[in-house]
Amino acid sequence: MSVIHRFLLITTIIWAPVILYAQQKSPPVDIGKESMYFPHHFQKYHLQTGLGFDFIKLPFDWVENALEAPLLDLHLTFGLPAGFSLEGNLNTILVSNQVSLGARWNYIHRNFSFNLGYDLGYSLGIMNFAGFKNTGMTLIHYPNASIGFKTKTLAFTFKGEAVIIAWGQMKTGEDLMSRSINFFDGMTGAIYLEQRIFRKKILIIGFKDNYVKYYWPAWMVFSTFDRYYHIPELHLLWVL
């Protein structure tokens, strides 16, 4: 996707609701309670859904051109008592998919908050065309922590997580290779901005930097480099 196209897509996503609904009166929204990434006491037994895209820029060393790809991102939260919550994610670009499930413990005091969490992710990639007969699977641990700050209308969240690859399996034609490794792959750091744009609709904009050696969406490039790469992601989601 060219720079021009990216610019147009992002501005459309952000500005369109303003243009379409600029004249309507908006009901009050407590951003601290309506957000998905900002640590807070989620509404008990209530499911929250966010849907959008993650735009990824893969390392030049791996793809040898300025390849970017959008991942479909489905993000779910489910509130539990005593500050706990569950979180789920589905990311897919068809040939690469990951589902992750995890738990959080959230604490909030006035406008500041934090949470501690752990996710387990299972990624599956299948390519059976254009000279590929491959399936790749990995199991990844994501211990994580977030701190948040909110104003009346904005919620900021800073999230850090470790990426630990527990197990991997690759099938190439008829050949199968499994590796059981608790391999420290790297870390990610992210910042999320959550804001009501119109009516009660919350827009989440996030920037995440993956500082990792192996990156599951790009399993099919079969990178063998033992180097850390910065792989940025831009997240754009709407809370449904």
Binding site: I10, W15, V18, F60, L154, I197, I205, Y229, H230
Partner: peptide, 25 residues
């Protein structure tokens, strides 16, 4: 104020999208 915020957000996103260059070593 909402429009101002959106403008800042847009600029923020564009700047972040420009990130992620890997210079050859």
């Amino acid at each position: 104020m909402g429009i101002m915020r959106n403008c800042l957000l847009t600029l923020f996103c564009i700047a972040l999208l420009m990130a992620g260059c890997n210079k050859s070593k």
